[in-house]
Amino acid sequence: MDRTADERVRTAGPAPAGLDTPPANRISHPVRPGRWLAAGVVAFVLVWLGWSVAVNPNLHWDIVVDYQFDRVILDGLWVTIQLTVASMLIGVVLGVVVALMQVSDSRILRTGATAYVWFFRGTPLLVQLIFWFNIALIFPEIGLGVPFDGPKLVTWETNALVTGFVAALLGLSINEGAYMSEIVRAGLRAVDPGQQEAAAALGMSRAKIMRRVVLPQAMRIIVPPTGNQFISMLKTTSLVSVIAGADLLTVAQRLYLTNFEVIALLIVASIWYLVLTTVASIGQYFLERRFSRGFGTTVPGTLRGRIGRNLRFTGSAR
């Protein structure tokens, strides 16, 4: 249990000693037939659905079981995890940098940041992914050297450099950076300007004020939506199947193109996605608890409620 909540209970304290404990309130709750009826309908539908899924011969549960831990599927799962973690990490770093640019005193930095966010939030991620995958059509070679067509030290074939995985990583992380910067910026804005003044009055440098005073407080605002972004990213990675990203969905598709077990393999993939998002939700719960230190009331609900909420179909709006 959260420390501050405990504290409050304690200070509210038991009734002063010496008084008789009052008799327990006897409250008769009204019967609500509507609610019972609704619960009955829902229960019936659930059972019926479960039954038809279980006995449906088209679902090939035996195939699902066969493939759940298939080598190829596990490789795809691993790629999905790598893609999610890497693009979230890069996205968060990008987001922080861009958010700091947006609140900086330099107009050029602010304009650059705004343009970045405008572009990458304004175009569909799917388009961006295909674009990165085909980047060789614009820049057949990538080199290091003097800008503006000056001499190059080294050059690479773009096609060799930008594999499906690299294109996926570029697309996902750069796009994520744009969303993260908005989240970080909202967090920074939520910190009372008096905090910076108090820190400055102590003689702290701007960098230290950011790192020790502003960001830790902004984290409380930043962490919950970032957790949501992470969970959403787990699912969004499936988009890279269009550029042969070798992720979970890609390998599932590859398998069912040869054995035609479309539904069974989609179920295999879905089960893994559910496992990943559930695990991530649990992590999110503990992270949020860690970052709400010192802020009284912000206990992030129960763990079970949190998992349920995260698994709601939000259909990432990108």
Binding site: D192, G194, Q195, E197, A198, A199, V213, P216, Q217, R220, R293, G294, F295
Partner: peptide
């Protein structure tokens, strides 16, 4: 300061 501005975290 009037409003203290302690670091809440």
């Amino acid at each position: 300061f009037q409003r203290f501005h302690l670091f809440p975290h």
